[in-house]
Amino acid sequence: AELMTLTIVKGAQGFGFTIADSPTGQRVKQILDIQGCPGLCEGDLIVEINQQNVQNLSHTEVVDILKDCPIGSETSLIIHRG
């Protein structure tokens, strides 16, 4: 298992991935745009978004944080894999 830092840019259609609740937090459910989120894999656990720890937040709260990220700006994700 490892922590990885990824930088992704939000496009007009969003980030290009969906998230779902899991017992340990929000996991990447589906990658819709592989080019839009390079390095991200289905099943990755989202630990931080732009230096904000999201592991204890609800699904709705994490979705809102992602929605609030401006289109075209870089967003830093720390994910836990494995």
Rank of each mutant, 00 (worst) to 15 (best):
A1E: 11
A1D: 03
A1V: 15
A1G: 06
E2F: 06
E2A: 10
E2I: 05
E2H: 06
L3P: 03
L3W: 04
M4L: 08
M4Q: 07
M4N: 09
T5N: 14
T5R: 04
T5D: 11
L6K: 07
L6T: 09
L6P: 03
T7W: 06
T7I: 12
T7M: 07
T7P: 10
T7F: 11
I8M: 09
I8E: 01
I8R: 01
I8Q: 08
I8A: 11
V9F: 10
V9M: 13
V9Y: 10
K10R: 06
K10G: 05
K10Y: 02
K10W: 01
K10V: 08
G11R: 07
G11V: 14
G11C: 04
G11H: 04
G11Y: 05
A12L: 09
A12G: 13
A12D: 11
A12H: 03
A12P: 10
A12N: 08
A12K: 10
Q13P: 12
Q13E: 13
Q13L: 08
Q13W: 06
Q13I: 03
Q13G: 12
G14I: 04
G14D: 15
G14S: 09
G14W: 03
G14N: 14
G14V: 06
F15C: 06
F15T: 07
F15P: 09
G16V: 05
G16F: 06
F17H: 00
F17M: 06
F17S: 00
T18V: 11
T18M: 09
I19W: 03
I19P: 11
I19A: 01
I19N: 01
I19Q: 00
A20C: 02
A20L: 04
D21H: 08
D21R: 09
D21W: 06
D21T: 15
D21V: 08
D21F: 03
S22H: 15
S22I: 02
S22F: 06
P23K: 13
P23Q: 11
P23N: 10
P23Y: 04
T24A: 12
T24Q: 10
G25N: 04
G25E: 05
G25F: 02
G25C: 04
G25Y: 04
Q26A: 14
Q26C: 10
R27Q: 14
R27T: 13
R27C: 01
V28P: 00
V28I: 15
K29Q: 09
K29D: 15
K29T: 14
K29H: 15
K29V: 05
Q30S: 08
Q30D: 11
Q30F: 15
Q30K: 15
Q30H: 09
I31C: 03
L32V: 14
L32C: 03
L32Y: 04
D33A: 10
D33G: 06
D33V: 04
D33C: 07
D33H: 07
D33Q: 13
I34K: 12
I34N: 14
I34D: 10
Q35T: 15
Q35Y: 08
Q35L: 06
G36T: 14
C37V: 05
C37M: 04
C37P: 01
P38L: 14
P38K: 12
P38C: 04
G39R: 04
G39P: 07
G39W: 03
G39Q: 15
L40M: 02
L40P: 03
L40W: 00
C41Q: 12
C41K: 10
E42G: 06
E42L: 11
E42S: 10
G43S: 06
G43R: 03
G43F: 02
D44R: 00
D44T: 00
L45R: 02
L45C: 01
L45S: 15
L45K: 10
I46L: 15
I46M: 15
I46W: 00
I46N: 00
V47N: 02
V47D: 04
V47R: 11
V47C: 08
V47G: 04
E48A: 03
E48T: 03
E48W: 04
E48S: 12
E48C: 04
E48I: 00
I49S: 00
I49Q: 00
I49V: 15
I49H: 00
N50A: 05
N50S: 11
N50K: 12
N50H: 13
Q51D: 11
Q51L: 08
Q51I: 02
Q52V: 10
N53L: 08
N53S: 11
N53P: 12
N53E: 10
N53T: 10
V54C: 07
V54N: 00
V54P: 00
V54F: 00
Q55N: 14
Q55P: 01
N56W: 15
L57M: 02
L57H: 12
L57A: 14
L57E: 10
L57T: 05
L57Q: 08
L57K: 06
L57I: 08
S58Q: 09
S58D: 03
S58G: 13
H59D: 04
H59T: 05
H59A: 07
H59Q: 12
H59G: 11
T60C: 15
T60L: 12
E61N: 02
E61I: 01
V62F: 02
V63A: 12
V63S: 06
D64T: 05
D64C: 02
D64A: 03
D64I: 03
D64K: 13
D64V: 09
I65N: 02
I65M: 09
I65T: 10
L66M: 10
L66I: 01
L66A: 01
L66R: 00
L66S: 01
L66G: 00
K67G: 14
D68V: 14
D68S: 06
C69E: 07
P70A: 03
P70H: 06
P70S: 12
P70G: 03
P70D: 15
P70M: 06
P70K: 09
I71G: 14
I71F: 12
G72C: 14
G72M: 14
G72W: 02
G72R: 13
G72N: 03
S73K: 10
S73A: 13
S73D: 05
E74S: 04
E74K: 03
E74W: 08
T75H: 14
T75F: 11
T75W: 04
T75A: 15
T75D: 07
S76R: 11
S76F: 07
S76T: 09
S76W: 05
S76A: 11
L77S: 01
L77M: 13
I78G: 08
I78A: 04
I78Y: 12
I78N: 12
I79D: 01
I79F: 10
I79M: 12
I79N: 02
I79C: 06
H80Q: 13
H80E: 13
R81K: 03
R81E: 01
R81Q: 09
G82D: 13
G82A: 09
